[in-house]
């Protein structure tokens, strides 16, 4: 459904590389995630695929249409929710929605089924100016506007950034429903915990794909034995474990530290070292890596 071949994009006369030689495919009906921090190149990829920007080199197609030669056809069949709120602040909720429907030659009524679950939540405020909506409501309106012409591919650029953990869960539940209706979705996010909700993900950093696979496979590819360690004073534990001669990597993960060692190690060796330094209530166990562990390993390994 979406195909990128050796796409490259630079800014500032080539001095800033936004996207470097990126290739990947997204299948029909797939929920595909671009996972990476600010500056990774996520937005540049979206702008090229939605024909708002032309790549320096490489080719790409959406729904079979070339992003450069057939940009008009693409614009008719994709929905795009940019990272920055881009609806008309001085139009009401209803006016915004009907504006987008009209532009695409349809009506709210015709495709109401598709947006119903999302739109009913903001419908009580349909006479309110879009600029006066809360963050969560703006997000729902933007999604409704991106869907109103029944696109085949939906591009969502960081839809959950700055959104609280409960609303984020709700948003992903909405995406799952849309996916069931056969819409192909490409979504970007800086939240690593959202990666597991995608069918496949590309982990990207500084314009390059670090890894591309199903979340399960990416986790399986993490070969090191990973341990979770906890003690009374987390900060001291972190600094002491980083000084330990056999420690390979050590990062905070919620209430535990996630640690890998350069060789097979027994629990006793580590706890003895820590006890000598005055740590108490030491807990030491193996743990299953998360996508975030994998990402950290990919960007820290030479």
């Amino acid at each position: 459904m979406v195909e990128l071949k050796n796409i490259k994009k630079t800014y500032n006369k080539g001095s800033i590389i936004a996207v470097e030689d990126i290739s990947f495919n997204v299948d029909k009906g797939e929920l595909f995630g671009l996972i990476g921090p600010d500056g990774a190149g996520k937005t540049s990829i979206f702008r090229m695929l939605t024909t708002l920007m032309i790549p320096d080199s490489g080719t790409a197609s959406v729904n079979g249409f070339d992003i450069v030669k057939e940009y008009k056809a693409i614009r008719n069949c994709v929905g795009y929710m940019p990272g920055k709120f881009s609806l008309y602040q001085d139009l009401t909720v209803e006016e915004n929605l009907s504006f987008f429907a009209t532009i695409f030659g349809t009506t709210i009524k015709e495709n109401y089924d598709l947006i119903k679950d999302i739109y009913v939540q903001i419908e009580p405020f349909k006479k309110r100016m879009a600029g006066k909506l809360s963050g969560g409501m703006k997000q729902k309106l933007a999604l409704s506007c991106a869907l109103i012409h029944k696109p085949t591919v939906l591009f969502l650029d960081e839809p959950t950034t700055g959104v609280d953990a409960v609303s984020r869960k709700e948003f992903w539940a909405m995406l799952k429903k849309l996916k069931q209706q056969g819409i192909t979705i490409i979504v970007s996010t800086p939240y690593m915990d959202e990666a597991i909700l995608c069918d496949r993900i590309a982990l990207i950093q500084a314009g390059k794909i670090l890894s591309l696979d199903t979340p399960e496979k990416i986790v399986t590819n993490f070969q090191d034995k990973l341990y979770a360690v906890k003690a009374n004073n987390t900060y001291k534990l972190l600094t002491d474990l980083r000084k330990f001669s056999l420690t390979n990597s050590c990062f905070a993960f919620g209430e535990y530290l996630h640690v890998t060692f350069s060789e097979n190690i027994s629990e006793n060796t580590v706890t003895a070292y820590l006890e000598k330094l005055g740590h108490t209530n030491i807990e030491f166990k193996t743990t299953i890596p998360t996508i975030e562990d994998c990402f950290i390993k990919l960007i820290t390994s030479p």
């Binding site: 972190l238 905070a252 990402f295 960007i299």
Partner: peptide, 19 residues
């Protein structure tokens, strides 16, 4: 919200500063 948008390693480095 001091750590929005950065990679997981920078996020943790920032928390080192907080500690």
């Amino acid at each position: 919200e001091p750590t929005g948008g950065v990679d997981p390693v920078s996020r943790r480095n920032f928390w080192d500063l907080i500690y």
